[in-house]
């Protein structure tokens, strides 16, 4: 018992020291918020990203490593809109870190700052894995990052007031470069307007809205439900009436269903990075959209 007590005490002491010394500890649930925090926080923040681009963000477990990192976090950046509902509430409850509980400055939910699309009309699990607040995959439209960067920079300044000017400066630099990049991507992607596409999972709503693509059908019969041969045959029938140029899937998804469709039709199977780290080119936020636009243009040919 004595040993245990001294161990506890030593660890507490260590905590006190580290929080005084270290930069803002940021816990990002998905890679895109880690990348945005990097843009805005620079070397004043220490970023831990809970998941990688090859992980299905709907199927994450409250792993011990996540609990440990949430314990030390000063700021948790989550998508919200129930994307992390399967694990984040449990991690927050087990981590015992009152700073990062929902409602506290240490908890930032990106989806509250953008307009969510595809809010389900019928809230029923018979419709598959539906998100009541709307589609949470907001990172496929670069304009959403511009909307989120503003309150996130303000949140950094609130948590770490000493470096407020630093965050403000980085925010301005990011906002300018990002606006220019959005215009550039918009110009580059102009030929994609009206191009009909299939999607494997309904994960590209915002991308499709941004670039004016036309979603013909999804390969999953219901969101989150594995594609079945019966449903894929239906999709083939739809394609007879409404041909599509390509079928989109996120890097983390299995390529079986889109390959199946691509083999039977003449359309291209396009793998999009979906988030930072989804492929070699998507190293940061700029690379993510450079590569996304590039792959779409190639796929549309």
């Amino acid at each position: 018992m004595k040993i245990l007590c001294s161990l506890l005490f030593a660890a507490m002491l260590d905590n006190g020291v580290s929080s005084a010394r270290a930069a803002v500890n940021v816990f990002a649930t998905v890679p895109e918020w880690g990348a945005l925090a990097e843009e805005l926080g620079g070397d004043k923040v220490k970023i831990y990203v809970a998941t990688n681009a090859l992980q299905d963000p709907h199927h994450v477990e409250a792993k011990p490593s996540l609990i440990a990192r949430a314990r030390n976090a000063d700021l948790i950046i989550a998508t919200g809109a129930e994307l992390e509902i399967g694990w984040l509430p449990l991690v927050l409850q087990q981590a015992g870190n009152p700073k990062v509980q929902p409602g506290k400055p240490g908890f930032f939910e990106a989806a509250t700052f953008v307009t969510l699309l595809d809010k389900p009309v019928r809230l029923d699990r018979a419709e598959g894995d539906v998100h009541p607040a709307g589609d949470p995959h907001i990172q496929t439209d670069p304009r959403n990052f511009a909307r989120i960067a503003t309150p996130l920079a303000a949140r950094f300044a609130e948590i770490d007031p000493e470096n407020a000017a630093y965050y403000q400066e980085r925010y301005k630099a990011f906002a300018d470069r990002w606006a220019a990049s959005i215009a550039k991507w918009g110009t580059e992607a102009a030929p994609l307007r009206g191009v009909p596409v299939l999607v494997q999972h309904k994960a590209f709503t915002y991308l499709i809205a941004w670039l004016g693509l036309k979603e013909i059908a999804a390969l999953e019969p219901k969101p989150g439900i594995e594609p079945t041969t019966a449903h894929l045959s239906e999709v083939l029938a739809i394609l007879q009436r409404q041909p599509a140029k390509m079928v989109l899937r996120a890097a983390y998804q299995s390529d079986r269903a889109s390959q199946w469709i691509a083999e039977r039709t003449k359309i291209n199977a396009v793998t999009l990075p979906f988030t930072v780290g989804g492929d070699a080119a998507a190293k940061d936020l700029y690379g993510l959209f450079d590569d996304t636009v590039d792959r779409l243009l190639k796929g549309a040919q």
Binding site: L4, L8, M12, S65, I67, A68, R71, N72, G96
Partner: peptide, 13 residues
Amino acid sequence: LKWVAPTDEFLEF
């Protein structure tokens, strides 16, 4: 009473 140590690896008492 549970306590999670402030370490990068998970350690809970």
